[in-house]
């Protein structure tokens, strides 16, 4: 490890005030099993050593093409998946190795998730009331029965649904309404961090806007911190304070939203942004549309050196040989690219 890299990693760690979640060198490999005996013959490196942090009250967007490991990262952070390596530091404690019973005491209340598919994320056999009571009862949130009732009504009101619908089943609601129920469920335990994995991707554009506004209202009201995972750059641009760009399980760039969208440094980020038809502000430079060559390499057999070099229009010799580590190009703007060595 070069001295430079070490300094940069330190600079990430030193900014700890107000940090709610920090991820250090997180890896999640899925074993590939073949044959009759299910022998492990290789690994899908879905997440391959990413580091970033989220400050309390902010929204961190995670973007990248399909299959780059966004969902895996989110699910590993909330400990639905066992991390292969690395640390997940939540409220100052490393939760990456905690067994399930400790997780239940320590984070299952404080970190919640909003899912992509509003049809699959609610149990079709449970009424809205049961759906919303489950997290509360699991953690014995209240003592009295009436308190549970009141909380259900309160939650429905919070997400803009009429409490009188609580005895209905999910199939009686539209996609947007179901997503509201999913949000209410995530709010039930008053969490600190909400991981939203493509929370609006399955919805109509007009409904997307409503849900995003709702998420922003709730954030302001309850000082929520969001990890907002999406492949949709315009949505991420709207909601995020800072953005992490992933490619093939690695972090390419990480910056404040304005910096990232106004002056993307990484060739991959530039290519991603050039593909979005967004209304550009005056101060933005007009970018040529960069079309990436070739296909996304397999995460089971990632390229050597910089994983992006096979498709990078600017690839140099060093990119094939040496892995670029994220370095601060300017305060708070990190890029993993040899162009900025």
């Amino acid at each position: 490890m070069t001295a430079e890299v070490r300094r940069d990693q330190q600079s990430i760690q030193s900014v700890t005030d107000g940090v709610l979640l920090e991820v250090r060198n997180l890896k999640k490999y899925f074993p590939i099993k073949t044959g009759l005996l299910q022998k492990t013959t290789g690994y899908i490196r879905a997440v391959d050593g990413i580091s970033f942090y989220v400050k309390k009250g902010e929204t961190l967007g995670i973007v990248g093409e399909s299959g780059c490991g966004k969902s895996t990262a989110g699910r590993t952070i909330i400990r639905l998946y066992e991390p292969t390596e690395g640390q997940i530091i939540f409220k100052g404690k490393d939760i990456s190795r905690l067994p399930e019973n400790r997780l239940r005491q320590q984070i299952r209340r404080d970190i919640q998730m909003i899912f992509q598919d509003p049809y699959a994320s609610l149990n079709p056999r449970k009424t809205v009331e049961k759906v919303l009571k489950e997290p509360l009862k699991t953690h014995r949130y209240f003592k009295m029965k009436s308190e549970y009732q009141d909380r259900v009504d309160e939650l429905l009101t919070l997400v803009g649904l009429d409490p009188s619908y609580k005895n209905r089943y999910p199939h009686e609601f539209s996609g947007g309404q179901r997503q509201r129920i999913g949000i209410a469920r995530a709010l039930a335990l008053n969490p600190d961090l909400i991981i939203a994995d493509e929370a609006v991707s399955a919805l109509d554009v007009s409904i997307q806007a409503q849900i995003i506004n709702l998420l922003q209202d709730l954030q302001a009201r309850f000082q929520l911190t969001y990890l907002f995972i999406s492949h949709d750059l315009s949505v991420v641009r709207h909601i995020s304070d800072r953005v992490v760009v992933l490619y093939l399980g690695r972090l390419m760039e990480w910056a404040a939203k304005e910096d990232l969208f106004n002056q993307p440094l990484h060739p991959y980020t530039q290519a991603l942004l050039s593909a979005v038809p967004v209304i550009r502000r005056k101060d933005e430079q007009i970018r040529e549309r960069i079309v990436l060559q070739g296909d996304l390499p397999s995460p089971a057999d990632p390229p050597t050196g910089c994983v992006f070099h096979t498709r990078c229009p600017m690839a140099m010799d060093i990119c094939r040989k040496q892995v670029p580590h994220p370095k601060a190009y300017r305060p708070g703007h990190f890029v993993a690219c040899h162009l900025y060595d």
Binding site: L80, R104, I111, A120, S121, H139
Partner: peptide, 26 residues
């Protein structure tokens, strides 16, 4: 691996309860 089961897991619902009260009725 359905999302409602994942949701129950992220809320800390126990495996036995997930099996009997979430999956079995379905």
């Amino acid at each position: 691996s359905r999302e409602f089961v994942l949701a129950a897991r992220t809320m800390g619902v126990r495996s036995s309860k997930i099996i009997f009260s979430h999956i079995l009725p379905n």
